[in-house]
């Protein structure tokens, strides 16, 4: 099989490992994003990351740390805007989205010389994940899983009925901020795999597909992680065979599966 042959290369093994690590995060957090209807919010946070990437280029530090700082900061800002201002969430997302992208473009323009991997931050570079990044991904995954384990009931309740959760004594504002932070961490993991522009796909498509076949939130989390692993491997394999962009291929494979699953569900119901 071609995939086996491909796995002889270290970059392919790293790509596979990165895909699996990213799938865990995007399956678990994606389920929360989709159920809470936060797809556009996660799009805003991921595009804000571009500002941090640009800052990394300008000041000469690893761009992924800039992305981490910008996603967390934008998550906090979104939480603040929602709770403390009159600006609608929808507009706030739009503002965040374009501010991040614009800052990124300006920072990169100001940086001396040429920005070689710019394209990979925008559209992913799963074939170029160094082992050091894998370690970061393991840590971020561990943080995400721990937080979701402890706050699962709260996330479920806040997504279902925020007023009731608040009336029951759940600190809904803080729970929401934590959820946004988890989205931020997941975005950072996913930037390696599919890039800033396509992150939103990995956060929503596997979970939306899984939702059609699940009764409970934890079932969506598990199933969407599994689906995401499958999509990543399929996408990697196809991109290897046809020598096309891996991130985009993963996304298109996911979209195709979502459409197929929806059609099958309609037929068999």
């Amino acid at each position: 099989m071609i995939l086996w042959e491909a796995l002889q290369y270290e970059f392919m093994r790293n790509a596979l490992a990165a895909g699996i690590l990213a799938s865990i995060a995007c399956g678990v957090v994606g389920a929360l994003v989709v159920v809470r209807r936060m797809s556009m919010m996660s799009g805003g946070i991921s595009h804000a990351a571009f500002g941090g990437i640009g800052l990394g280029y300008l000041l000469g530090f690893e761009p992924i740390y800039g992305a981490l700082a910008f996603t967390i900061a934008s998550a906090m800002m979104m939480g603040f805007i929602r709770e403390r201002t009159e600006i609608s969430e929808d507009s706030a997302i739009g503002i965040l989205w374009v501010t991040g992208m614009s800052l990124g473009v300006i920072f990169i323009g100001l940086s001396p010389g040429y920005a070689p991997d710019l394209f990979s931050y925008l559209f992913g570079s799963i074939l170029a994940v160094p082992s050091s990044d894998l370690a970061v991904m393991v840590v971020l995954d561990a943080v995400i899983l721990t937080v979701v384990y402890f706050l699962y009931e709260e996330f479920l309740a806040v997504s279902f009925d925020e007023d009731f959760a608040k009336a029951s004594g759940v600190p809904t504002e803080r729970v929401y901020l934590i959820l946004l932070s988890l989205v931020a961490l997941t975005v950072v993991i996913l930037i390696r795999v599919v890039g800033v522009v396509l992150v939103i796909a990995m956060l929503t498509i596997p979970a939306a597909t899984a939702w059609q076949f699940s009764r409970r939130l934890n079932e969506i989390m598990l199933l969407s992680s599994i689906l995401s692993v499958i999509f990543t491997i399929e996408g990697l394999w196809l991109s290897y065979i046809f020598n096309i962009a891996s991130g985009a291929t993963i996304v298109l494979v996911s979209v195709a599966t979502l459409l197929l699953a929806s059609a099958l569900k309609k037929i068999f119901q």
Binding site: V35, L151, E153, E154, L156, A157, S159, F160, D161, F164, A165, S168, G169, V170, P171, W211, S214, R215, R216, L217, E219, I220
Partner: peptide
């Protein structure tokens, strides 16, 4: 309520115990 929400009857009823179990 969002009728598509992924929770069972028991999941929903248990939400009433949120205040007692600690965060």
């Amino acid at each position: 309520f969002d009728r598509e929400f992924p929770a069972t009857v028991l999941d929903v009823v248990l939400m009433g115990r949120l205040g007692r179990k600690g965060i």
